[in-house]
């Protein structure tokens, strides 16, 4: 038995190590090209180790967006606030839906599910949010439209509640005289750390990486998140490639960031979330510990 366990460990380690290398290799190219002089890339091609170091890309970023710090601030606020709000709404809805005795349970589940398949499209959504709620050029535009809660996360959480929270737990809480809300906050949530950490992680990533809301609802640069700024730099190229502005394109093209800058942009965009990741990791691991206590 010991032996089979050792083999499992070895096999798992080997495969996961290979996968990790596979995942990380492109990032080495990414980071190394962000430190390589553009002319060198165009001449010698991409490589894993920069032949000539250059910080030009990062210089460009620093000079070109004095607002990068503020943008980071906005991103952090939106991510934190949005994720917490989102977790609250999602878990409340998901928990209620997970209760086998909830009247109209299937109808409600269907209402949630339906939103995953059908949507009105960008234009109607924009009209709802700008004409009725006047959300344009406010910080809410980065938090609410499309991001705050999605049916996918609700259903995922509901499935977790159904499969991992034993019914007797809820039953005994009720017998002890705890109200629904107290049961939920002091018994259910602590038991659900793995799923909360998972959805929290997904939401954090969603908020951190979102540029679309800023693209559509913001014209005021002071509200731009970091991804809005980065995406703006990246999208210029595509704009010029797909829009024929004749001889005038050339003038605009001169303001386009180079390959190295594009890579540096990617590095700046990814880095913070990597730093935040171990935080969630801790809770995922904690989830195991709780599972052990339960068993």
């Amino acid at each position: 038995m010991y032996k089979s366990d050792r083999i499992t460990q070895w096999v798992s380690h080997t495969i996961l190590l290979l996968l990790s290398i596979g995942s990380i290799i492109p990032f080495i190219i990414l980071v190394s090209s962000s430190f390589t002089d553009e002319a060198t890339i165009l001449k010698d091609g991409y490589s894993f180790f920069p032949k000539e170091f250059s910080f030009a890309a990062y210089d460009y970023l620093l000079n070109n967006s004095g607002s990068i710090l503020r943008a980071y601030g906005i991103t952090v606020f939106v991510t934190l606030f949005g994720t917490i709000l989102s977790l609250t709404i999602t878990s409340l809805l998901a928990y209620a839906l997970s209760r086998r005795d909830l009247p109209y349970r299937n109808t409600f589940a269907f209402i949630v599910f339906f939103t995953l398949l059908f949507n009105g499209g960008m234009v109607p959504t924009y009209l709802v949010y700008t004409e009725i709620f006047d959300i344009k050029n406010t910080i809410w535009a980065l938090i609410i439209p499309g991001l705050l809660m999605n049916g996918f996360n609700v259903l995922l959480m509901r499935t977790f509640f159904i499969t991992s929270i034993p019914e007797p737990v809820i039953e005994s809480a009720r017998i002890d005289g705890a109200g629904e809300f107290r049961t939920f906050f002091s018994i259910i949530l602590p038991l659900s750390l793995p799923i909360l950490a998972t959805i929290g992680l997904l939401q954090t990533i969603t908020y951190w990486n979102d540029w679309f809301n800023g693209l559509i609802y913001l014209t005021e640069p002071s509200l731009f998140s970091i991804q809005n700024i980065l995406n703006r730099m990246l999208a210029d190229i595509q704009f010029l490639a797909s829009n024929n502005l004749g001889g005038n394109a050339a003038e605009a093209a001169s303001q386009i960031p180079s390959t190295g800058v594009r890579m540096a942009i990617a590095v700046i965009g990814v880095l913070p979330i990597l730093i935040a990741y171990p935080f969630f990791q801790k809770y995922l691991v904690k989830g195991i510990a709780i599972g052990a206590v339960k068993g």
Binding site: T88, T115, G120, T125, L148
Partner: peptide, 14 residues
């Protein structure tokens, strides 16, 4: 709260 959000974000634009 969740259903109101779905109403605004998903059903109204339909």
């Amino acid at each position: 709260p969740g259903l109101i959000y779905l109403l605004i974000n998903n059903y109204l634009p339909m």
